[in-house]
């Protein structure tokens, strides 16, 4: 399973990576913002994306909107904070499949990843 992590914080990406590797996913690519992610999706062809909302250059919502223009189905999990909670519906309308609010525990993240993948597989 190829997974793309889009987050400006290296620490967050490491945390996500660690959670993913415990779930058995090791094929992971990282991008530090929306622009970087857009340049990587073509070649990497991820099967799941974890996208942070707040990023410099291009935020997560803009990235999702752009990405969804070409790819309608690859599942996206949005990483948000409490401040964006009211806008989560906006993200969902843009094509986000699931979301996780910071702060989250590793357990919650892996639960979200699992339920998202299960839903896609169903």
């Amino acid at each position: 399973m190829k997974i793309l992590l889009v987050d400006d914080s290296k620490t967050m990406r490491n945390i996500q990576k660690s959670v993913l590797s415990q779930l058995g996913y090791t094929e992971i690519e990282e991008a530090c913002d929306g622009v970087d992610a857009l340049s990587k999706v073509g070649a990497f062809e991820p099967e799941l994306l974890l996208v942070d909302w707040n990023m410099p250059n291009m935020d997560g919502l803009t990235f999702v909107k752009k990405y969804r223009q070409s790819d309608k189905s690859t599942p996206i999990i949005m990483v948000t904070t409490e401040t964006e909670r009211a806008r989560v519906v906006e993200a969902i309308k843009a094509g986000v499949n699931n979301y996780v609010v910071k702060p989250f525990t590793p357990d919650l993240l892996s639960q979200r990843i699992n339920e998202t993948l299960e839903k896609v597989a169903a």
Binding site: R85, A86, V88, V89, E90, I92, K93, N98, Y99, R112
Partner: peptide, 13 residues
């Protein structure tokens, strides 16, 4: 849980 907390936003929308 993750969905019910959003339902109000969703209904308005």
């Amino acid at each position: 849980a993750g969905k019910s907390e959003l339902i109000d936003f969703m209904v308005t929308d």
